[in-house]
């Protein structure tokens, strides 16, 4: 482009947090420079505070009723829409992941995995009930059936090194069943996660269903793992200290903890409907019937 407008100054993007369907700066006003691997500053990243996390949980809680109340078919359509939007912007994602330090080939694989995985979980949205729910035989005059229901607000810590595919692997099964989530984006490579929020914002996903923060795990882990209004926590990582803190703090409200240690996100075991039921509760109903 430089031949066309040789003196043009490029416009750099401001990467913001995504809370309750809005692109917001941190309430703390803090930010940190993000450097590429050669040490050049490519962007400023918001440094989220615990209040940003609290606001995100409030947004997620408020969005839960609407999102879980949509028909499963509609949620499926929306997840598929996200995949479509992502495919259309794959060039931008690849460019950002290269800035984040990936090779071009690796970045392309990441985007393709991410899109395919969204489609995979979009497909499961209105099907996992049939597989995991059902009619139970009982020895009385009752019609007895069980259905899986979303658990509520899920705090998500995606894999640090597998940014875009890792993010999708972490959140797609969570939101597929109707949960809402608060995500702490990868510290090493947050750009593609933040651009993903633009996909979320333009794919009919109601505000608050997916909330993405950038900041440091050291600062936010305490709140991520103690907030009483978080019903479950998904941790994709192997740091024993982090895992121990999460498990200890989960005792506060006996929230569900799921630790995933997939070596490679491209691993096919990430595409698995049990990932959906990791964040559902089984509800069983006894319905009296005549003889």
């Amino acid at each position: 482009m430089s031949e066309i407008m040789p003196n043009r100054i490029p416009v750099l993007k401001t990467y913001k947090l995504y809370i309750g369907g809005k692109f917001e700066r941190s309430e703390s006003g803090r930010y940190i420079p993000y450097l590429d691997k050669s040490g050049h500053q490519v962007a400023n990243i918001c440094l989220a505070s615990r209040k940003d996390f609290r606001n995100a949980v409030v947004a997620a809680r408020n969005a839960f009723g609407g999102w879980s109340g949509k028909t499963a078919y509609n949620r499926s359509q929306i997840l598929y829409r996200m995949a479509e939007m992502m495919e259309g912007r794959s060039a931008q994602f690849i460019e950002e992941m290269v800035l984040e330090g990936s090779g071009k080939k690796e970045a392309t694989l990441q985007v393709q995995t991410a899109v395919d995985r969204l489609v995979y979980f979009a497909g499961w949205c209105d099907k996992y009930h049939q597989v995991f729910g059902g009619v139970n035989p009982v020895a009385s005059a009752h019609f007895n059936f069980s259905v899986p229901e979303p658990i509520g607000v899920v705090a998500v810590l995606p894999a640090e090194r597998q940014t875009l595919a890792g993010l999708i692997t972490a959140i797609a099964p969570v939101i597929a069943s109707g949960n809402t989530c608060v995500v702490l984006a990868s510290q090493l490579a947050p750009l593609s996660s933040l651009t993903f929020t633009e996909i979320v914002a333009t794919s009919d996903v109601p505000g608050g269903v997916v909330n993405v923060l950038t900041g440091t795990l050291e600062e936010l882990l305490e709140q991520f793992s103690t907030h009483m209004d978080v019903n479950a926590i998904a941790c994709h990582g192997t740091n024993p200290e982090t895992i121990r803190t999460i498990q200890q703090n989960a005792a506060l409200n006996v929230r569900r903890v799921k630790i995933y240690t997939d070596a490679a996100i491209a691993d096919s075991k990430c595409e698995n409907p049990y990932r959906i039921t990791d964040f559902t509760e089984i509800k069983t109903t006894w319905h009296p019937v005549g003889d």
Binding site: V57, T226, M228, D229, N253
Partner: peptide, 9 residues
């Protein structure tokens, strides 16, 4: 307590 609370409780 230092812990954010939930309306559930």
């Amino acid at each position: 307590t230092g812990v954010y609370q939930s309306g559930d409780y």
